[in-house]
Simulated assay, not measured.
Amino acid sequence: MSPLDQANRGQRNGALVHKHAADGRDRCTGVGNSFRGVGDDVDGNHTAEHDEKFTRDEKFTRFVISVRPGLRRSAYLLCGDWHEADDLVQNTLLAVLRHWDRLRWPEVAFGYARTTMYRIFVSDRRHARWRLESVRAEVPDRPAGGSGETNIADRELLLAALRELPPRQRAALTLRYFEDLDVARTAEILECEPSTIRSQTTRALATMRLVMSKYR
């Protein structure tokens, strides 16, 4: 299955998650009203079953709402394109959903989501041999305008330089300096030795300085 097909299937499954959450609310409400006073055992068992599902779906929905913006920003730094970033985040959240029952605490779930997203990115770029960023914007000329325009150009220049890096170096830099993780945690997420992270970070920074110096 192609990455695009996987992304489309992920979007359909993601929509189903939210639909089930809404259905769970409706069914729980309906059960409570319809069986009131019928039989305590029957009512209690039936309601508990639906309440458990409702609680699970509601917690996952709240989790998605809270973490998706941050994951999307990180994914954009990795992909350099908002559409690819959305696909990466969607696939990440589907992976979280598959393991949701054992991710009992929000901190654990977020750590798992972040780790999964970076590993999906590196794996897909390595095995699918995605093209270099054909969607990348041209490196901007420095404007003659005021400080606001200068800041925008600096940001675009930084993103363009970041997109020049190989996927693993891009991931290492994003984890170290955007996510603010230490070398050991970055190495754990990218499944390599800390010394590898240090060398990749050094090479990545040197490449970015060289790229940016050409346009200053």
Score class of each variant (00 low, 15 high):
L94K: 05
V67Y: 04
T174D: 07
A184Y: 08
G37R: 08
R209M: 11
V31R: 00
I152S: 09
C79V: 11
E179H: 11
V17F: 08
E156I: 08
K19A: 14
P140M: 12
V42H: 03
Q200L: 15
L165Y: 14
R170F: 07
V64W: 00
L157M: 15
R142C: 06
T116M: 06
A187R: 01
R114T: 12
N91C: 06
R125N: 13
I120F: 06
Y76Q: 12
P3W: 02
R125I: 02
T116Y: 05
F35N: 04
D87L: 01
V31N: 00
R168W: 10
V108K: 08
Y215W: 10
E191M: 13
T174W: 02
E193N: 15
E164S: 10
V17D: 03
D41W: 05
M1R: 05
N13W: 00
D180K: 11
E188L: 13
L78Y: 00
E193Q: 06
L175D: 04
E84C: 07
R56N: 00
S199Y: 08
T174H: 05
R155A: 15
E52V: 02
M1D: 03
L16W: 01
D40V: 12
R27V: 12
L71K: 09
T186I: 06
H46S: 01
D180S: 09
Q169H: 02
E107T: 06
Y112T: 05
N45I: 09
G39Q: 01
P69T: 14
C79Y: 09
D26R: 14
L16Y: 05
W100E: 06
H99C: 12
E107N: 08
H127M: 07
Y215N: 11
S195K: 13
R62W: 00
H50R: 04
T196A: 15
N33K: 14
E149I: 06
S66F: 00
R216C: 12
L159C: 09
V38H: 10
S74W: 04
P194C: 02
R198H: 05
I197R: 07
Y112I: 00
P140I: 08
A171T: 10
R72K: 13
S134Y: 06
L77T: 06
L205G: 06
Y112A: 05
V135H: 15
V42A: 09
F60G: 00
